[in-house]
Amino acid sequence: MWVRMKKLINDPDDIVDEMLDGIVATHPDRFRRLPDTQVLVRDDAPLDGKVGVVSGGGSGHEPAHAGYVGDGMLDGAAAGDVFSSPTADEFEELIEACDSGEGVLAVVKNYEGDVMNFETAIELVEMEGTDVETVVVNDDVAVEDSLYTSGRRGVCGTILVHKAAGAKAAEGADLKEVQRVGQKVIDNVGTMGMALTSCVTPEKGEPTFDLGEDEIELGIGIHGEPGTERTDIMRADEITEELTTAVLDDLDLDEGQEVVTIVNGMGGTPQMELFVVNRRLQELLDDHGLETWDAWVGDYMTSLDMAGCSVTICAVDEELKELLSAPVNTPALTAP
């Protein structure tokens, strides 16, 4: 008989609500929760004279996105139910709460629900006179545009977009400039993920997809959506080669290009293993004549308790280097 997986859950229906209260309880000086919503904003939002930068999406990808709310990054984030988009009215409240009059950049991951709800919200706030620009992140190289109507999915590269756009906004740049640097990251970033195990959604309490004891799935999405290939388990180095090759083939970088890399854990993989992957990733980049300017390793964009990882590579120039290394102070990302 199937037994519900052991989880730290009171009631699946309450999990997002209780998580958000828990985040505020952890960081009472940083956040406030907009009444009757699943929206968290900086306690001091909106910041006078600064363009607002907001994001949001389904829950289950923590620390995305609330973990990136703070100085130098996001002004607020909307949390949907697990793996479902926030609703348009929540995005509407988020945008309004983060608009100081300088306008707001919405960073949207490319999923139909997220895009449509954000678009609806934007149209509504624009009717009230708020300036909003959007960037849609679609860094997942696994999925071809021709097969999936929503085009490529937005995954871990989103964090770099948050960072660059947030830093630009903190400099006091105008909305167009903040949008431009967000788009610049999107134009230069690629990600490829893989799963060792399926995630377990709180609602269902059992694995979302079946993966054999000795199977892995390459090109997996952050909701457990189908990847590109199911194959027998390989050594860590071989998996790293598969992921890295897929991203590099997509980006087609010149020799000597400087890059930022992220080895991102999907939620259920120890850091030890992520470092093993990063070790091989850096060797491969070296073989390709690429220069790693900065390497990140950790859980940045997760898929609940899925075991596995993704590799993100972003080509950087002087401007992006400056923005990506600018001071940041958020629960999930801190740099002096």
Binding site: S84, T87, A88, E112, G113, M116, N117, T120, E123, L124
Partner: peptide, 22 residues
């Protein structure tokens, strides 16, 4: 429309509800 927008999840909220609002 506003109610549908906030109560119907996913893409249906904007499609059925948002369109009614506009």
């Amino acid at each position: 429309g506003k109610t549908l927008m906030s109560e119907v999840g996913g893409a249906s909220g904007p499609l059925y509800g948002g369109s009614l609002v506009f």
